[in-house]
């Protein structure tokens, strides 16, 4: 919810005050933030003591639990939107 409010504040500032000439700087800011988020996710994973043993023991089953819902979800959305304009 906080995220949504912050984004709405950003939208408001974008409409009222923000100029398109800063778009490039804004994009770089997005890339930096994204890298920080992913780096931090990796660090919290790597810091788990059982990380390597978990990956090797439960890796294949976990992969199935990731890939099957992805395929089903993409298929469902594709069937519902194949005639939509984007």
């Amino acid at each position: 919810m906080t995220i949504l409010i912050i984004m709405c504040v950003g939208v408001f500032i974008g409409i009222k005050f923000f100029s398109k000439k800063y778009a490039k700087a804004n994009y770089i800011l997005q890339v930096v933030c994204t890298c920080v988020l992913i780096f931090s996710m990796g660090a919290s994973l790597g810091a788990r003591e059982e990380f390597l043993s978990e990956i090797s023991a439960l890796g294949l089953d976990s992969l199935i639990f990731a890939v099957v819902p992805i395929i089903f979800s993409v298929l469902a959305v594709y069937l519902l939107t194949k005639n939509q304009k984007q």
């Binding site: 984004m7 974008g14 409409i15 923000f18 933030c33 920080v36 931090s40 919290s44």
Partner: peptide
């Protein structure tokens, strides 16, 4: 790692604010 968790929370807020500005523009 704990500190990084706090930093990443703020990074997400900044990201969302920045995305909001892109949309608003």
């Amino acid at each position: 790692v704990e500190l990084l968790g706090v930093i990443s929370e703020y990074a997400l807020y900044i990201l969302m604010f920045s995305v909001g500005m892109s949309i608003g523009t």
